[in-house]
């Protein structure tokens, strides 16, 4: 039960993008088309989940016993960077068009603060191994959901008559803000 609560909390109530405002860069950058936004969400979910697993192992199995907690940032960055490299290789192998559609935002998952944030949250909240996995999955699901919803709205936005001054990034940020407001409605759920 606890793990399901953690999952729902990370996915909806404390959504990484719309509640913590982590990972805004890909959220704005890759939300032009639903298909590529969804793929980005899946790639990020994968990285988040594996990061949760690996960083938990490294922190609680290696860093803590050796009293090397101060190295957590370096270690987590190392984990994330390697995982992103791996994901990049896999996507390039599996789908060339997707690889080109994601473009620079794929390597930029490395600097996606949502992922480092996740690793640090796990340490901060002292999650168990299983809890970490669900936390990672939940965060990824939340990110995928947010970016896909955003892409859906932006596809419609293309056809809308937006005032000149708001075209492009401004209206996107306003929509993101309204979306975040909507997600605040979930805050009483747990």
């Amino acid at each position: 039960m606890e793990v399901i609560l953690i999952f729902i909390s990370a996915a909806i109530i404390n959504n990484f993008v719309l509640s913590y405002f982590l990972g805004i860069c890909p959220f704005i950058g890759v939300s032009n088309k639903i298909s590529s936004a969804f793929s980005m969400g899946i790639a990020t979910t994968f990285v988040l989940t594996v990061t949760a697993i690996v960083s938990w192992l490294i922190y609680f199995m290696i860093l803590l016993p050796f009293k090397l907690e101060f190295l957590q940032y370096v270690a987590f960055i190392l984990v994330i960077a390697s995982l992103v490299q791996l994901v990049e290789m896999v996507i390039k192998k599996v789908s060339q068009p997707l690889y080109r559609a994601l473009g620079i935002f794929l390597p930029l998952i490395t600097t996606n603060c949502a992922i480092l944030g996740l690793a640090l949250f796990i340490v901060l909240r002292n999650y168990s191994f299983i809890e970490s996995i669900f936390f990672g999955l939940g965060a990824g699901t939340g990110f995928t959901m947010a970016i896909t919803i955003m892409a859906g709205i932006r596809e419609e936005l293309e056809l809308a008559n937006v005032p000149d001054a708001f075209k492009g990034a401004p209206i996107t940020l306003i929509v993101a803000g309204i979306l975040a407001l909507a997600f605040m409605g979930f805050s009483g759920l747990l």
Partner: peptide, 30 residues
């Protein structure tokens, strides 16, 4: 000793990931 442990840990982790990536690169090279 703490310094040495730190260096060894990070070095070991780095090597581990580097090895993993090198292996993946061979398997997944396009």
């Amino acid at each position: 000793t703490g310094l040495i442990i730190a260096i060894a840990t990070m070095g070991g982790l780095g090597l581990l990931f580097a090895g993993g990536l090198a292996f993946a690169d061979k398997k997944l090279r396009v």
